[in-house]
């Protein structure tokens, strides 16, 4: 079993890494060093998905590089201190997002890989979403109509679904 690492081609491969990107799964045999570069820890067989632990852990490692005195930073609205947030991973009130913005920016970037909301806001509707949601409703009604053997109704619903199809639809109906 002295297959060379698929990445560096030099050190022996010791760990099988499964990568999923763009819906495809690729498997590679890597040495520990190359795997570590990808963020795969060879010592743990499976990922730990506990999100709260992640927050707590990140708060500890990443944020403590910052100014020690900032631990005293306090949210003016709810009185939560930065130290308390680092401890629990939970914010006290909506205003905490403003009060701890420096530390939160670091944390949020690590969690989400982004620093700005791109979805809709209160009261806004996305046209694409409206169509998608109506389609979901119509498909439901169609299934009901078919179950009740109301075929005229079903045909009408089916036509409506065809008319509504989302234009940029490479929306797969799922696996085989």
């Amino acid at each position: 079993m002295s297959r060379p690492c698929d990445s560096c081609g030099q050190r022996p491969a010791e760990i099988r890494v499964t990568e999923v990107s763009r819906g495809r799964i690729e498997e590679r045999m890597l040495c520990n060093a190359c795997a570590a570069q990808l963020g795969v820890d060879a010592s743990s067989t499976q990922g730990d998905f506990s999100v709260s632990k992640l927050v707590a852990g990140m708060a500890e490692q990443g944020l403590s590089d910052g100014d020690r005195r900032s631990e005293e930073t306090t949210c003016p609205s709810c009185g939560l201190t930065l130290a308390e947030f680092r401890e629990s991973g939970k914010l006290g009130c909506p205003d905490c997002y403003h009060a701890f913005i420096r530390d939160l920016s670091v944390l949020i970037r690590r969690l989400h890989g982004a620093l700005r909301h791109t979805g809709r806001g209160p009261g806004e509707r996305s046209a694409e979403q409206a169509i998608r949601l109506e389609l979901a409703a119509l498909r439901n009604q169609l299934a009901e109509a078919v179950a009740k053997e109301a075929y005229e109704e079903a045909a009408r619903l089916r036509d409506r679904i065809r008319e509504l199809k989302v234009p940029s639809s490479d929306h797969p109906e799922g696996a085989a």
Binding site: S52, G89, K90, L91, Y97, L107, I108, L111, R116, H117
Partner: peptide
């Protein structure tokens, strides 16, 4: 900037 604010930053946006 952050979208809908949540008690845990893992849900924000």
């Amino acid at each position: 900037q952050w979208g809908y604010l949540t008690s845990c930053p893992t849900n924000v946006g």
